[in-house]
Simulated assay, not measured.
Amino acid sequence: MTTTPGTGVTAATAKTAAASADESKKPTVDYESFLKLLTAQLRNQDPLAPMDASQFMTQLAQLSTVEQSMRSNDTLGKVLDTLKSSGMRMDMALLGRKVEVESNQLSLTGGKAEAAYTVDGQPASVKLDVLNAAGNVVYSTPGALQTGRQVFSWTGKTPSGGTAPDGLYTLRVTAKDKDGKTLNTATVVTDTVAEVRSVDGATKFVLKNGATVDSGAVLSAS
């Protein structure tokens, strides 16, 4: 009995190749598609040139690897979800507590605002500017020329003799060394956590003064 391969085998082979190309475009491995592809390849192979046994074993090994990979991905996904849930519970523990955060958002309440700042290096000049929501400077003063942590206090008084309204302001610290080179600075404020939010999988803390900071900005809690 003689069997002659016809156009059906060629079409099936082309279809299999097209399916393989589509699979390669997927961002993750699809175990079910891999199994269907292997089954179709066996069903439509050329009877005059059957698949080599070693090649078949190689593909079975690949199938096993794909299955293990899918199971590992599922396990890792569950572990990640657990860690996120655990991290969120830990973040919720800061609700209502006073925290020290790296932020330049300064709150003026009842004629009192306070923040701390540090300068990376020995400053020859330090300038402190308080900006309102529109980005306009409402108060300026020279800063301390010492190294280490420094405290800035503001009563809300403006150069014109008026008083700035209560609200959220920005503290800008500009420091330069003796050669006129700008030095890195960091600003720290202390406030109470009023709200904990999860935004795109990341935790955000809303402070009592209205500022929103990342969880990584929290330096200490009391």
Rank of each mutant, 00 (worst) to 15 (best):
T3D: 02
G6C: 07
T7L: 11
K15Q: 10
K15Y: 06
A19S: 07
S20M: 10
A21V: 14
S24M: 07
K25H: 02
K25E: 07
K25R: 11
S54I: 05
Q59K: 08
L63H: 06
G77A: 09
L83S: 13
K84E: 12
S86N: 12
S86E: 10
M88Y: 12
M90N: 12
D91R: 04
D91A: 15
M92Q: 14
V99I: 08
N104V: 01
Q105E: 12
S107Q: 08
T109N: 11
G111C: 09
Y117Q: 06
G121C: 06
A124D: 15
V126C: 12
L128R: 06
L128I: 15
V138C: 06
S140K: 08
T147G: 12
V151R: 14
S153Q: 15
T155N: 15
G161P: 06
P165D: 09
D166K: 03
T170M: 06
R172P: 00
K176L: 05
D177F: 02
D177N: 14
K181W: 00
T182C: 05
N184T: 15
A186K: 13
T187G: 02
V189G: 01
D191A: 06
A194Q: 10
R197W: 08
T203K: 01
F205S: 01
V206T: 09
T212E: 09
V213A: 02
D214H: 01
A217H: 02
L219N: 09
A221I: 01
S222Y: 07
